[in-house]
Simulated assay, not measured.
Amino acid sequence: MDTNTIANRLGTLLLATAMLAGCAKHAYESPAETSVKTTESYLTVKPGSGSDAGGGAKADLGVLLAYEHQIRIRMPGERIAARASEVQAACNSGKFGACAVLGMSQSGGDDPSATVQVRIVPDGVDKLIGLASKGEQIAERSIQAEDLATAVRDNSLRQDRLRKEHARLLEFQDRKDLKIADVMTLSGRIAEIEAQLQAAEQEAAQQQRRISTQLVTLTFQTTRAQENTGEIGQAFKDVGSIVTGVVAFMIRAFAALLPVAVVLFVLVVVIRRIRRARRKS
């Protein structure tokens, strides 16, 4: 075998060895490296895809809620009036933020009670309830919310429509070729639109007030023990009125039946005389 043949065979053998080594490296790649590559491929996500849809961002439900709170507080009757006045004073002074007293009523006697209704900013709701129920029992608390989103949107669209129509009518009114009758008709229509626009703006202000503030109704009542005692005392007090009512009913019944009794008595007397006369004959 000559030198050239030996060299060719050695070159072929080295090339085959190198190819086999490359295939073996690809076939026996470590699991860790494969896992890293797979993870990197899944982490490469386009913005706005489903992977980040459940992120920390809050979903906008598109609601505009008007909250109303109903709180019933039980406490000793002798402290009800003072506590109601304290709540009213705190609201009027703005102690817990902007607040307005919408109504207040009190009743005394054996079963005193009081009701205070206010409209207050959201941050002051819990503070005002805490003042009202300080050291006392909250017997009942309920929260209701009304979604005003649709009403606000409809009112906004109505205002836009009215403003556009008002602007067009003003343009027509400025024309010089209008007759007096047309001017009067336009003036009447403009006044009507302005009245509707004013009503819509007032409604929008009321809606905004209901959304930005919350209605709180505080009802103060006596404790269960005092309430039961008051009912028993009231029952004893009612005895006289009940007896008087029964006696009055009996008198009225006697007065109603007296004419009937007189008529029956006369009939009986007449019938007896007729029978006696027949017997004698």
Rank of each mutant, 00 (worst) to 15 (best):
L257I: 07
G240S: 11
A235Q: 11
G240K: 03
V247Q: 02
R224C: 00
A256N: 09
G233F: 13
E227Q: 14
S241N: 13
A255D: 03
I232G: 04
E231T: 15
A253S: 08
Q221N: 09
A253Q: 06
V243I: 13
K237R: 15
D238T: 03
T244W: 09
V243F: 10
A225S: 11
V260W: 08
T219A: 07
T244E: 14
F220H: 01
G240C: 03
E227D: 15
F220T: 02
P259G: 02
Q226D: 09
A235C: 09
L258M: 10
G233A: 15
F249E: 13
D238H: 11
N228Q: 14
I242Y: 12
L258R: 10
T219F: 04
T223F: 02
P259S: 04
G230S: 00
A256L: 12
F254T: 13
T217G: 08
V243K: 06
F249Y: 03
T223Y: 04
E227W: 07
G245P: 00
A256F: 12
Q226F: 01
Q226L: 03
D238I: 04
R252D: 06
V246D: 08
V260F: 10
V239L: 10
Q234V: 03
I242V: 10
T223K: 01
A235W: 12
L218I: 14
T223S: 08
T244L: 06
E231Q: 13
R252M: 14
A248G: 04
I251E: 00
A248E: 02
S241Q: 14
L257S: 12
I242F: 09
V260R: 09
R252Q: 13
A248R: 05
V260H: 08
G233K: 15
I232Y: 12
E231I: 11
A256Q: 12
R252N: 03
V243M: 07
K237N: 10
S241G: 05
Q226M: 00
A253V: 09
A255V: 14
Q221V: 14
E227F: 08
S241D: 15
V247E: 00
N228S: 08
N228I: 14
T217H: 02
T217I: 11
T217C: 05
V260D: 07
A256W: 15
K237C: 06
P259N: 01
T217Q: 11
L258A: 14
M250A: 09
E231K: 13
D238S: 13
F220N: 04
A248I: 00
I232P: 03
Q234G: 14
A248C: 01
G245D: 00
T244D: 12
G233T: 14
A255L: 10
A235T: 15
L218C: 05
L218G: 02
N228F: 12
A235V: 05
Q234Y: 08
Q221K: 06
T219H: 05
Q226N: 08
F249V: 13
V260I: 12
I242M: 06
T222K: 00
V260Y: 12
I251W: 02
A256K: 11
G240Q: 04
Q226V: 00
F254E: 15
V247K: 04
A225M: 10
F220D: 02
R224F: 07
Q221F: 02
F220A: 01
D238L: 01
E227T: 07
Q221W: 01
G230N: 03
V243S: 04
G245S: 08
Q221P: 00
A256P: 06
T222M: 05
S241R: 10
T222L: 02
R224E: 14
L218D: 04
